[in-house]
Amino acid sequence: MISVERTVFVDRPPGEVLRYLADFGHTPQWDPGTESCTRLDSGPVAEGACWRNVSRFRGRRTELRYSLEHYGPDRLVFVGRNRTVTATDDITVRASAPGTVVRYRASLRFNGLARLAAPFLRAEFERLADAVAARLPVVLAGP
């Protein structure tokens, strides 16, 4: 398994930040690896909501079906799956005057033969996490 974690500060109230991040359809705006993320169901964003996420990693496109597994007052947990990987995005927000601290943790558990590649992919995932940490505050600072 590979886990990466980054913490960023944003000058927005925690409630606004949580509501924005709860809609996984926004990931193309703040995750440089995501090409598209389309809601598969309808209604308010709540636990059980699902998205089709298409990402590019090391020149290859991959598709995962994500669901919002936990939507709490200060924490979101998304789980994405396909036949080779289970991805968990665990996001917490907490007030920190005058804004919000966001902790983003992504964990990837590879299935089958893909598990053998995990040690060789860590550096690439670290770079991607750095890119998310650089982009997320810029996006969240917007209007």
Rank of each mutant, 00 (worst) to 15 (best):
S96T: 07
T88L: 03
P44K: 11
P143A: 10
R83M: 07
A95M: 11
S36D: 06
G59I: 06
S42E: 15
R52A: 01
R12Y: 13
G48K: 07
F120K: 13
P32N: 02
R12P: 03
E5P: 04
E16V: 13
R60A: 03
V8A: 06
G112P: 09
R12H: 14
S67W: 01
R127N: 08
E35K: 13
A141K: 13
P13S: 12
R122M: 14
D89S: 04
P32E: 03
L18C: 02
R105D: 01
P13I: 08
R65D: 02
V79I: 02
F120P: 08
A117W: 12
G112D: 10
R19C: 03
V8T: 06
T92V: 02
S107H: 00
V93W: 07
G72H: 00
R105Q: 01
G59R: 08
R81Y: 00
T88M: 09
R75K: 02
R105E: 02
A95N: 06
P32L: 03
R61G: 05
Y104E: 00
G15D: 12
R94Q: 04
L128H: 13
E63P: 01
R39F: 13
A141F: 10
L108K: 04
P13C: 09
L21A: 01
T38M: 03
E124S: 12
V4C: 02
R105G: 01
A134H: 11
G48P: 09
N82S: 10
A117R: 15
D23W: 10
G80H: 07
V139E: 13
G112Q: 10
S36V: 03
H70T: 06
D31G: 04
A87Q: 09
P44F: 04
N53L: 10
E124R: 12
A114H: 12
V102I: 07
A141I: 08
R83P: 05
T88I: 06
A49T: 15
R127I: 04
G99W: 14
R105P: 01
A134G: 08
T86L: 10
R56W: 05
E47F: 07
V101K: 14
R75S: 00
Y66S: 11
V8N: 06
T38L: 04
A46I: 09
V93D: 05
R81D: 00
D130N: 05
V45M: 11
R12M: 15
N53I: 06
Q29L: 10
R103D: 14
R19S: 05
G15V: 10
F57Q: 06
P14K: 10
C37A: 02
G112K: 14
W51K: 05
A118L: 11
F78M: 00
A123G: 03
F57Y: 08
T27S: 09
L68K: 04
A114L: 13
R94E: 07
R56V: 08
L108M: 03
L64R: 10
I91A: 02
R12T: 12
R127S: 07
I91W: 01
V54Q: 07
A46K: 12
T100D: 06
L140M: 11
F57N: 05
E126N: 11
S42D: 15
W51N: 03
A118R: 15
S96M: 12
G48L: 10
